[in-house]
Write a protein that binds this DNA or RNA. Structure first.
Lengths: 336, 336
DNA sequence: GGGCCCGACTACAACGTTTTCGTAAAAAGA
DNA sequence: TCTTTTTACGAAAACGTTGTAGTCGGGCCC
């Protein structure tokens, strides 16, 4: 445990604790020679101020929390990197919490964050969050909250998202133009607003091109990879199987590849595949996967930037400042 | 900011602050009815103890730091997940710091951690760390340090690694048995002990099978993806190009795929490829990539477990307790 | 020379917990 | 009945910083 503190420096230098404290914060109340002496000794003794004492006194922890459903996923990993980059620049520390897509865990994390442990929170909802009281409470306690990607519409907080509706539309359109006439959509938790938007993009895309909507073509996937595998397998085994698949998240696209391999279906001949994904290996897959890729790193940076704007400005900011970054369609062999 | 505190609870209940504090910690010194009353009010007022006050008083933050070179990488992402899982179980919080493979950033992080902000540190070295004074200093301040994967041999600290030497040997052996006669090794920073071990496995593998060692076949890669690309391209463009490649990290294996595609080289016919990797899509690549995969999640869990053992036991533990988890060779088409 | 300001400090009270040391009353022991 | 122990609590001092409110000597002005 750290043991060199202000008192020791003060004693050594024959000045008061307050003088040392102020000298270190480069206050104008302290003469230059004194500051010099303090700086030197602090450096020599490798003094590191106790952050907990400081936080307690200042009601400010210079720490933020990042709450995400999972991390073993390029999207969230890159977002973390973006957040950490900005946080480091600003001299903030980053606590990380994984909810594992569990609303209960998310709630308990959020509740524990009410303690004032962090100055602000960046969050991406779990797939099963319906009750958002824990998030409202955070706001009520004046702890700024910024959403990214999996945002919550029913709460007034800044958010950073991609153009999910348009992306869903574009993905569907792309498949239709590639000749698909039975397009399936692999959706995730319909609790999430991004799911709705992607789905709406899908249905509107179908409508726009006068394609019939068949709700047998919408597969609602869950957390369990095994279950999803079965559902996708069932979908692709059926006599009227789709000739195009739009996967709303990366892991589902990957599963489609596995299923096709097992069933001996050829991508893209038998079925074309497009998916939301940030896989670095998308272009190396067999066949290369057409993706809608989100600017994860920039989203993280943006979310952090917005949060710090709130933390640092004294004047009131509008309750919302949303940022919508465009996702990018990268056409590859899986849809050609 | 949180504003309900012990004093308020105490006033409301007409007891002293100490009583409330003790009641909440379920002390035997407090009568059951009093505890009941305290618990109820605390719940009703949604009391969350101020962690900073507590940490200051107890010299214990219930927080650990995870310091890693990067996060947008399945290995480290999974390790984080393992660490976070154990930390959550133990009621600890996890701070994350990315060094971006920069020794300077690693040093500044480690130095700032001397403040007592965390109770312990789990670290994987940056690729350029040579000076380890900042880590020694941490230990001297009694902040337990546990290494994982990229460990530091010259410092007495517990470590969690895979059998890198054996893996290097096995990878090389596998290529030789597959018929390769000119095997290249794509190495990373030779500052790292894992690099040495993997390399030693490689050279010993060659020797064991009476293959000549050609140091033109060892490519020392850096951080810059462009530079690496050029080096790999040069390697594969040369007239006496290798017929087998052993990549010591995932991103290099991926680069090999890109280069081969560009040069029109067929994997595995022209060149066979094996690499350390935790890619979930390894089996879906074109061709499927033979990997040495490390049990990243378990390594994270193990590292955290060791750290908490140190944090929680009162009695002295041996300075070292290393864990070596086996990596796994997964043979796929890229070496067949 | 008395009042005033000013530069450069110091003293002390916070911040919200935990913990040490008491102590009154009740229970137990003699 | 009187001491001793136990039970259940309270007062106050930490923990290391920071902010507020002085203090004190000296220079300046009139």
């Amino acid at each position: 445990m750290n043991t060199v503190n202000l008192k020791q420096l003060a004693k050594e230098l024959n000045v008061s604790v307050s003088t040392v404290s102020r000298a270190l914060r480069d206050s104008w109340e302290i003469s230059t020679p004194t500051k010099q002496r303090v700086f030197e000794l602090a450096k020599k003794m490798n003094f590191q101020p106790n952050p907990y004492a400081s936080s307690l006194r200042k009601h400010r922890s210079r720490t933020i929390a990042v709450v995400i459903p999972e991390v073993a996923n390029n999207f969230f990993a890159l977002a973390i990197k973006g957040i950490e980059t900005i946080a480091r620049e600003k001299g903030y520390h980053v606590l990380i919490y994984l909810t594992n897509e569990d609303a209960g865990e998310e709630m308990s994390v959020a509740t524990s964050l009410q303690s004032g442990r962090v100055d602000g929170v960046i969050l991406s909802l779990s797939g099963h969050t319906t009750d958002i009281r824990h998030l409202v409470e955070l706001q009520q306690r004046n702890i700024p909250l910024v959403f990214f990607d999996r945002v919550c519409d029913s709460i007034g907080a800044p958010r950073v998202v991609t153009n999910d509706y348009e992306s869903g539309f574009v993905a569907t359109e792309h498949l239709i133009r590639a000749g698909c006439r039975r397009i399936a959509h692999l959706a995730i938790s319909m609790e999430l607003s991004i799911s709705h938007k992607r789905m709406k993009g899908y249905t509107d895309g179908l409508r726009r091109y006068d394609q019939p909507f068949d709700d047998g073509m919408v597969v609602h996937c869950e957390d369990s990879d095994e279950e999803n595998y079965k559902k996708i397998r069932a979908l692709l085994s059926s006599p009227d199987r789709p000739d195009g698949i739009f996967a709303s998240v990366e892991k589902l696209a990957v599963q489609v590849y596995h299923v096709c391999r097992e069933l001996g279906l050829d991508i893209p001949r038998d079925v074309k595949v497009i998916g939301f994904s940030n896989l670095v290996t998308a272009s190396l897959l067999n066949p290369a996967l057409t993706t809608i890729s989100q600017p994860a790193y920039d989203m993280g940076k943006e979310a952090a930037t917005i949060l710090f704007r709130r933390l640092e400005k004294k004047y009131i900011l509008p309750p919302e400042d949303s940022v919508i970054l465009p996702a990018k369609l990268e056409v590859r062999s899986s849809t050609i």
